[in-house]
Simulated assay, not measured.
Amino acid sequence: MTTTVAVFGSCNMDLVAYVETAPKQGETVPGREFHTVPGGKGANQAIAAAKAGAAVRMIGAVGEDPFGTQIRETLQKSTVDVSGLRVVPRRSGTAHIVVDAEGGNSIVVVPGANATVDGLVEGDEDLIAGARSLLLQLEIPFSGVAAAAAAGRRNGVRVVLTPAPAVPLSADILSNVDLLVPNEHEAAILAGDADPRRALAALLQLVPEVVITLGARGSLYGNRDGARVEVPSFPVDAVDTTAAGDTFVGVLSTALGEGAEVPEALRLASAGAAVSVQRNGASSSMPTRQEIIDFVATR
């Protein structure tokens, strides 16, 4: 059964430099490679879900520049519906990424056109209402996130929020979130506790379901009914972790929308992330549904 996923969020062009060791303040280091890859947490999650088998609708904004054209074309090539992706008279958002030899990354995001996604425009709610899941992140204005979350709640759509970048969240957003998916660092900031299990308990006071991703240690799920599920990661040699979190969320939402039980959905999401970190780039590293199935079959 094909599930429909709406994504309301950011679209960026990722400007990625690969280095042996990331530079410290005031330091210049040589780079090994440089790539421009369409990304942004919204677009990344849209592509991840589409490659995993969902019918995906992207709602957001790009600029009137070559980056905007390339972002739109990349989404379309991944079968993402871009009828909700508007073009605005400013530069597209960019993410300036440094990836070290261990696959770790540091990122500076310049919002650009994403700053205009501060609410719903005509047609947005219809795109959200026709979906089973709505994926949100925090690379657009909070007012836009809050408006989309409220539209999801009004229309009975499962609202999934990735709280990145991690900042304190208002009640008008959290009251409409069904599933929160932070990484362990974001969970610690939001919960005020670095222990994942205590953070999980604290976050469940705010939303009905939580998945905390733990990097190489897997993921931890909980809900208000007391269910707890822990799924280990798949050990691989990472070359670029930029897309791991967004791949996880896109695959997870697709699997849950198709009716998978939580443990299986988490396992598939972990497999998708494991495949992605073995490749360079964000959207370019995301696996297809068949690649995820084949990867799981070998483990």
Score class of each variant (00 low, 15 high):
Val110Glu: 12
Val275Arg: 13
Ala188Trp: 05
Val211Arg: 09
Gly152Lys: 09
Leu138Val: 05
Asp294Val: 02
Ile189Met: 15
Ala255Ser: 15
Val239Lys: 06
Arg32His: 12
Pro182His: 10
Ser283Gly: 06
Ala166Met: 07
Val108Thr: 15
Glu261Pro: 04
Val181Ala: 04
Leu85Cys: 07
Asp193Ile: 04
Gln70Arg: 15
Leu203Ala: 11
Val236Glu: 06
Lys51Glu: 10
Ala201His: 13
Thr4Gln: 15
Ala216Tyr: 01
Gly39Cys: 06
Arg72Trp: 06
Glu230Ala: 11
Ala22Asn: 00
Val157Gln: 07
Thr162Ala: 11
Ser219Trp: 09
Leu200Glu: 00
Gly60Phe: 06
Asp246Lys: 06
Val207Tyr: 03
Gln205Ser: 14
Ala271Val: 03
Pro208Asp: 13
Gly103Trp: 04
Ile293Asn: 11
Ala166Phe: 07
Arg90Pro: 04
Thr36Val: 05
Thr241Trp: 00
Val249Cys: 13
Ser276His: 05
Thr241Asp: 01
Glu122Phe: 02
Val5Ala: 00
Arg289Glu: 11
Leu206Met: 14
Ala238Thr: 05
Gly112Tyr: 02
Ala260Met: 11
Gly103His: 05
Ser285Tyr: 06
Val207Thr: 08
Asp195Ser: 13
Pro66Arg: 07
Leu266Glu: 09
Gly68Phe: 08
Ala202Gln: 14
Arg72His: 12
Ala43Leu: 10
Ala244Pro: 05
Val231Arg: 15
Ala255Val: 02
His96Tyr: 06
